[in-house]
Simulated scan of single mutants.
Amino acid sequence: MSHLNSAQLKELEHTLHEEKKDLERHFSVEEEDQGDLSESLTDSTGELSSYDNHPADMGTETFERGRDLAVDEKLSSELEQVNAALSKIDKGEYGVCEVCGKDIPFERLQALPYTPYCIDDTPEKNISDDRPVEEQVMTPPPSGAGEGRQEREGRFDDADAWESVEEYGTSNSPAMAAKRDVKDYNEGM
């Protein structure tokens, strides 16, 4: 911790305490507003039954809950990192990379005060590490799927479909025709 002077350390510690306060406020406000995210979806929505709801309503509720859980998981992890950084300050170990043992530059700590790594030793986040379990049993699409889309463009589109159907007339009766005194269904068009 010798590379940080007392003013720098005080600034970083203040930033960490403010961030911790914000994160804890998020969790306390969420508990008051939404209750427990571990309760059932039916209980959390206040519905007696989900049978009378449109499937899209339940889909929206499910999406919102999944998003809330993902945000909570990320913020919870961030809170753990902030607490670990504050603990390192108390022990006099703050600002040192956990991998190589070198000092973490003050500018990096200003940007990310709870980081335990220098830039060179920051672990790579591999997106494929957190893939959904369903992908393990999914089969890839057949080769060439979707390749011919552009080749068939313009051959038969929605406008062509309307023109094809239009030749059969409309469902309007002669009484509904725009022209007066129409006797035949096809005359009113």
Rank of each mutant, 00 (worst) to 15 (best):
A56E: 13
I119D: 08
T139N: 02
T60C: 01
V71L: 14
P55M: 01
S38R: 07
R65E: 14
S128A: 09
L112H: 11
L86N: 04
D129Q: 10
M138H: 07
C97D: 02
G46T: 07
G101R: 08
P140H: 02
L86T: 05
R108Q: 07
S50G: 06
D57A: 10
I89T: 06
S128W: 06
G101A: 11
G101Q: 11
G146H: 02
S44R: 11
R67D: 14
E80Q: 10
K125I: 09
E93T: 13
D129H: 03
A145F: 14
G59E: 08
L37V: 08
K102Q: 05
I89S: 02
P113R: 00
G144S: 10
T139R: 13
E134S: 15
L48A: 11
G59D: 00
E80P: 08
E73K: 01
N83A: 06
G95K: 01
P105L: 03
L86D: 00
Q136T: 09
Y114A: 08
S76Q: 14
P140N: 06
S143R: 13
Q81C: 09
Q81D: 15
L86Y: 02
E135A: 09
G66R: 11
E73W: 00
K91R: 12
P105W: 01
S76K: 13
Y117G: 02
Y114E: 13
K102E: 11
D43I: 06
I89N: 02
R108Y: 01
Q136Y: 14
G95D: 01
F106L: 04
G101V: 12
D57E: 15
L37N: 05
P140T: 10
P55I: 03
T122K: 15
L37M: 11
C118H: 02
N53Y: 14
M138D: 07
C100E: 05
L37D: 14
C118D: 07
P105A: 04
R65L: 08
D103P: 04
S87A: 13
T62Y: 12
S76V: 06
G101M: 14
F63E: 15
T122A: 15
Y94V: 00
S40A: 09
D68M: 12
C100T: 12
D43Y: 12
M138V: 02
D43P: 00
N126M: 08
D68E: 15
P132M: 00
L69V: 12
G144M: 00
Q136L: 14
Y51V: 15
M58E: 06
A111N: 01
N53L: 15
G92C: 03
